[in-house]
Design a protein around this nucleic acid. Structure first.
Length: 823
RNA sequence: GCCUGGGUGGCGAAAUUGGUAGACGCAAGGGACUUAAAAUCCCUCGGUAGCAAUACCAUGCCGGUUCGAUUCCGGCCCCAGGCACCA
């Protein structure tokens, strides 16, 4: 073996070995149990960044470890290739998005190979290829046939200068990123998938996902936001209209002091008909973005329409206001405002001097002042006539019953979750397979005519989709009646592609169907790994797609991802490492300097996967030094000749130091196995191996037994580190005289005979403060232990003038003497 | 604004089920080797006092439960992720 660690050479050899042996090509049939390990696929932005390295390093470590546990592992990779950045690059560099994307994919693939990830490249997918997106076009037409697709108007960010729809990201401080024009909200017709039809199942099945982080499940539960309430119809004084509102707090209905409707509400339009002031106010409300964060932090503005709603329960007249904090896309776009018991209503009422009427009082009898502070907790009803004294549930039922008798209310389950708008007014996406016919309306493209191929040679101008200007794309005939017709020019939301790619990896070469039986062998994904930023949207859409595919007979399971690991963000100087912030560190520079193993080791060592990771250039040195130390230790060990371990090697008589090292070795193996398998705390697994190597290096003595123990320890360290640093361990495994390739080795087993101990160290506390450490026999009797503890000099010092109240013993760990001052 | 996390030495972190706070590593300081440097190896390293043994303080802030709290509970502050057209 080489005297010095040369990462380039070592990594080249290992990578060639894997390639020659097709090591990572997954087999669709095997006697071993299957294990599907998937890291979220990347957007091909051109270069790997540290977030990628972290994501794929975690996945790679898990995949390699599972392989060692004897599983038939699938570890695929592909490209989430449609998206906005390709159009931006096209604008900037005058290169077609497809060309830019293909180049980036080639680039990043080379980088992946350099990092030594155990991907099965034979299943590589790029979502921008017709062979892929044709199947989601097909799936969309199937959903259409099942009534799960519909078209309705919905609001987008509109740049009035560029005459184009903007993504939220393209709106900077309320202005278009290129034109600088104030952005407007504009309604246009768009296609929707009925994800709300699955809302209850998406919610309920979260309980069937014990392998998901509680945090993610909580976020999804709140996002779905199921509530039970009442749909109430308010008549309007001197008008034929009805105002529908939904409330989850019918117990507060007698506290309604105004109604608030969105600017887009039909009643707002009606009220403004002969009222220029209202018209102007509505126009003002339509400025700004569609982002909820903006709407929620905006200064609350409102204007009285002059219309009055009538409370069906007591006939009171309630003013109807247009308010900019009411979302037109949520519920009916109107609310009954109870300022005493709703935060936003309270703020609005304070601003416009609207009455605040308390109708709930805390059930513990404490008193509140709703003029000073809002009270949103449920409690007991007051100031509400016949409902006084009722708690939430009885008030809910009483109000519901009364409203039902008046035909003015029905119980309703409501969701915060909205249907999924999938239309994008962009070029670089999968065309939505719809044809508009003057006679037949919107007609889905028949399966035999799929895919609707996206034309590739286009010029991006930044003002609307180039597809609109391509008659050869737009002009077609109606599949129903054969008359001239127009194609839809909008493309799919790119979340569509990422909602089912995990299943396609099972059968990427299938040209006759979306999925085949192999998808049922491999799915669900056993371990899914990705950024916490995907906790809601991507993961919810994928769950929805999986259930929809199940209902179409394409898969059999209910959920796509059995276990989920959400990795934290890679930060530098306290903020997310990203191109836009300009604080990126190029992984390639580090690979060049230290090699892939050091980069992998560092990123796994710096923090546990779920935590955010603060990048440090300096600390990478430490990882490199450790690998050099490992190399040198092995080098030194084998320089005196290779040591062979006989099967009964562990039955020999070891001295104290040797016993201690073997104890350390096998307790470390136990700990590291647990870190890999259950905890996913690879940082502590690495730390434990560093400690172990330190211990190996401090074992003095060069007798035969010492050499054998060193051999055993180094073998095990190599195996334990092999999923994290696969290249150097490939080389060192051979150097230690092993004939096999380390990639084919099983995970090692703990030798329990090495864990036998005669004595154990125990802490002695007095009133919870550590006063001594004592070494006692493992089987020491309780009273003897108590005596030994009290005999300790320092303990005795602290017992002077005290009387012992009791002694608490935690076996093999500590003993706490509880004392008090003597009378 | 709303939802979800997080806050421990100069820095990244560890403490797994309420049981020794700071493992492991980085940085820093000192030393060995060297003509010198790099590399490597050894020692010190939360704060205060002390030669030391040791004592007191210390896990964002305030309070509580407990023999014992980084860990559990209540309130507050700050930071991060998400908020439906970034992916």
């Amino acid at each position: 073996m080489d005297q010095n660690y040369n990462p380039k050479e070592v990594e080249q050899i290992a990578q060639s070995y894997w390639q020659e042996h097709n090591t990572f090509q997954a087999q669709d049939d095997s006697k071993k149990p299957k294990y599907y390990c998937l890291s979220m696929f990347p957007y091909p932005s051109g270069n790997l960044h540290m977030g990628h390295v972290r994501n794929y390093a975690i996945g790679d470590v898990i995949a390699r470890h599972q392989r060692m546990l004897g599983k038939n592992v699938l570890h695929p990779i592909g490209w989430d290739a449609f998206g906005l950045p390709a159009e931006n690059a096209a604008l900037k560099h005058n290169v077609p998005p497809a060309e830019w994307t293909d180049k980036n994919i080639a680039n990043m693939k080379a980088q992946f190979l350099q990092l030594g990830f155990s991907f099965d490249w034979s299943r590589e997918i790029a979502t921008c290829k017709p062979e892929y997106y044709r199947w989601e076009q097909w799936f969309f037409t199937q959903l259409f046939a099942k009534g799960l697709v519909y078209r309705k108007n919905s609001i987008v960010n509109w740049d009035p200068v560029d005459q184009t729809v903007l993504a939220n990201e393209q709106v900077i401080n309320g202005r278009g990123w290129r034109s600088g024009a104030l952005v407007e909200r504009k309604e246009i017709p768009q296609w929707f998938l009925k994800i709300t039809a699955y809302a209850d199942e998406l919610l309920a099945d979260l309980d069937a996902l014990p392998g998901w982080p509680e945090q993610v499940k909580t976020m999804q539960r709140n996002w779905i936001g199921r509530s039970v309430g009442i749909n109430i119809s308010f008549k309007i004084a001197n008008e034929p209209h009805i105002l529908q509102v939904y409330t989850s707090r019918p117990d507060t209905i007698m506290g309604v002091t105004f109604m608030a409707i969105a600017a887009e509400h039909p009643l707002a339009t009606h009220a403004a008909k002969n009222n220029p002031k209202l018209q102007q106010f509505i126009a003002e409300c339509q400025q700004g973005t569609t982002a909820e964060a903006d709407l929620a932090t905006m200064e609350k503005l409102g204007m009285d329409t002059g219309l009055k709603a009538i409370n069906p329960l007591d006939g009171t007249q309630i003013p109807i206001w247009i308010a900019n904090y009411v979302l037109s896309e949520y519920g009916s776009g109107a609310i009954m405002a109870v300022p005493a018991h709703d935060e936003r209503d309270w703020e609005f009422a304070k601003k416009y001097n609207l009455p605040i009427k308390q109708v709930i009082t805390p059930s513990d009898g404490s008193s509140i002042d709703v003029e000073q502070a809002v009270y949103t907790e449920p409690g007991l009803v007051i100031n509400s006539g016949k409902y006084n004294g009722a708690d939430f549930n009885s008030a809910f039922n009483a109000v519901l019953q009364d409203l039902q008798l008046l035909h003015a209310g029905t119980e309703q389950v409501n969701y915060r979750l909205r249907d999924w708008g999938v239309s994008r007014q962009r070029y670089w996406g999968a065309p939505i397979p719809i044809i508009y016919c003057d006679s037949c309306g919107a007609v889905p493209v028949p399966a035999k005519d799929l895919p609707v191929v996206l034309p590739l040679n286009v010029t991006i101008t930044g003002a609307g989709s180039p597809l609109k200007k391509m008659p050869e794309f737009c002009n077609t005939t109606c599949p129903n009646c054969g008359k001239a017709a127009q194609r839809e020019t909008d493309t799919f939301d790119t979340f569509i592609e990422s909602s089912w790619y995990y299943a396609r990896y099972a059968c990427p070469d299938q040209n006759e169907a979306m999925l085949d039986q192999r998808a049922n062998y491999w799915t669900p994904v056993d371990q899914y790994i990705g950024g916490i930023e995907h906790a809601i949207l991507h993961l919810l859409y994928s769950r929805f797609f999986h259930k929809a595919m199940r209902d179409m007979g394409l898969v059999k399971s209910n959920e796509p991802f059995t276990n989920l690991l959400t990795q934290g963000t890679v930060l530098k100087d306290g903020s997310k490492m990203s191109k836009s912030v300009g604080n990126t560190v190029d992984p390639l520079d580090l690979i060049e300097k230290y090699g892939a193993d050091t980069v992998r080791l560092f990123i796994m060592f710096a923090a546990p996967p779920e935590q955010s990771l603060e990048w440090s250039d300096a600390a990478v040195d430490g990882a490199y030094r450790f690998l050099k130390r490992l190399w040198n230790t092995v080098q030194q060990h084998v320089s005196t000749g290779i040591v062979e371990l006989k099967p009964d090697y562990n039955k020999q008589e070891f001295n104290t130091a040797q016993k201690a090292l073997r104890y350390k070795l096998h307790s470390t193996l136990g700990k590291v196995s647990d870190d890999y398998e259950r905890r996913f705390t690879f940082n502590t697994a690495i730390a434990a191996n560093m400690e172990l190597l330190n211990a190996v290096n401090s074992l003095n003595g060069d007798g035969v037994l010492d050499q054998q123990i060193r051999q055993e320890a180094l073998n095990l360290i190599i195996l334990m580190l092999s999923p994290i640093t696969p290249h150097i361990t490939h080389a060192l495994w051979h150097a230690l005289g092993n004939k096999t390739a380390v990639i084919d080795e099983p995970w090692p087993k703990v030798d329990h005979s090495a864990l036998q101990q005669d004595t154990v160290n125990m802490v002695v506390q007095i009133n919870g403060k550590v006063r001594a450490n004592i070494e006692v026999g493992v089987d020491v009797a309780k009273h003897e232990l108590e005596q030994l503890a009290q005999q300790n000099e320092n303990v005795q010092k602290h017992l002077v003038g005290k009387s012992i109240k009791k002694i608490i013993i935690v076996p093999r760990k500590l003993l706490n003497i509880v004392v008090e001052e003597q009378e």
